[in-house]
């Protein structure tokens, strides 16, 4: 447990120190959302708002992941000696999930500022985003670990993670569409399945990561 906390703390400190990566992500979010704003010029139906929101979320999280999840290769040698793959991946999943949540909250803020916000039921929307973002970040963590081994970087990561993200995204999209209805019902089932997908992805990461751990 202590080890877990120590790794998370170390990642956080590292992240806070590099101002460049924060600024890059912020700028990326702003420009992508601004392009969407220019293309749609404010007259967005809730359905379109929702679709656009999730498309932007994938691209933003992909970008954030590629910048931030990058295992600093030179330090890996040190990490090998102090911890086990299971502890490392758990710490990574927790840290990346929190990181991605912050990124998506910033993204939602900028997106709502420019394109409005038709969400009626804030709590459903927030829980959906929370669950979806956590799943996306775990899946991207794994995809990034795979892509790094492939030496393909961003492009490889995108093609291997897009098809795998689909079940998560359609469930989340469906739920957030529900949150825009005046009187949302029947959302518990979908929320449970979103949670189940998250748990499944986390379990797969936990089981499979040790095979990617070292060469």
């Amino acid at each position: 447990m202590n080890q877990l906390a120590a790794i998370i703390q170390r990642e956080l400190r590292h992240e806070l120190r590099s101002r460049r990566s924060w600024l890059a992500i912020l700028l990326y979010i702003s420009s992508v959302v601004y392009i969407a704003y220019l293309a749609f010029q404010h007259d967005l139906e809730p359905v379109t708002w929702n679709a656009l929101f999730w498309i932007l979320t994938i691209f933003i999280s992909m970008f954030a992941a590629s910048g931030s999840f990058a295992g600093r290769e030179s330090e890996m040698l040190y990490i090998y000696t102090i911890t086990s793959p299971h502890k490392f991946i758990m710490a990574r999943l927790i840290y990346n999930g929190m990181f991605m949540l912050v990124v998506s909250i910033v993204a939602i803020a900028i997106y709502s500022l420019l394109l409005g916000n038709p969400v009626g039921s804030g709590s459903i929307f927030f829980i959906t985003v929370l669950l979806a973002v956590w799943g996306i970040s775990s899946l991207l963590t794994m995809a990034f670990a795979i892509a790094t081994k492939g030496g393909g970087g961003f492009a490889l990561m995108a093609i291997i993670s897009f098809p795998l993200l689909v079940p998560l995204l359609i469930t989340a999209q469906h739920l957030s569409a529900l949150s825009m209805m005046p009187d949302p019902t029947n959302y518990t089932g979908n929320m449970a399945s979103l949670l189940a997908i998250d748990a499944l992805i986390a379990a797969l990461c936990y089981l499979l990561f040790p095979y990617l751990w070292r060469d």
């Binding site: 795979i146 492939g150 291997i160 797969l204």
Partner: peptide, 8 residues
């Protein structure tokens, strides 16, 4: 790596 991805 391919085996890991295949399972996923």
């Amino acid at each position: 790596v391919a085996a890991v991805y295949n399972i996923f």
